[in-house]
Design a protein around this nucleic acid. Structure first.
Length: 118
DNA sequence: GCCCTGACGTGAA
DNA sequence: ATTCACGCCAGGG
């Protein structure tokens, strides 16, 4: 019997942190890793989501790159799927990037938050 | 065990 | 805004 990926404590921590991300909120891989108690291990967060089963990371789509772009290349099926899921939760896109809440900008919705805490 | 790849991030050129 | 070089470390061959 092969063991599931979440037998690794690090992976489990990442999945757990991911479940704490509220709907309509996006975090970067680095943020997710930091929330999981693994600062500097952004890449590990990516690996965890890559290896994740649907049950481990039901909200995988709320994780994006630090620069606001999606990990999947634009035009791919995965990219479109993730974008659609995010937009259905109120996340605003500007081109291929997630638009952050901007104080000086116009009527931007407050649904596009990044890090839950500071 | 060695080597390369990679759902990443940051700083410099 | 874009490209490059590094640092990081788990997986797969």
């Amino acid at each position: 019997m092969p063991e599931p990926p979440d037998t690794n404590p690090s992976f489990a921590a990442i999945y757990s942190a991911l479940r704490d991300i509220p709907a309509g909120t996006v975090v970067s891989y680095g943020e997710l890793a930091r929330l999981a108690g693994l600062p500097g291990r952004a890449r590990l967060a990516g690996t965890a989501l890559r290896e994740a089963r649907g049950e481990d990371a039901p909200t995988w789509y709320r994780v994006i790159r630090a620069d606001g772009s999606l990990a999947f290349p634009p035009g791919t099926e995965s990219h479109r799927r993730q974008r659609k899921l995010l937009e259905s939760e109120g996340v605003i896109f500007a081109g291929n990037r997630v638009q952050r809440a901007d104080p000086v900008s116009e009527n931007i919705v407050d649904a596009a938050l990044w890090g839950p805490s500071t």
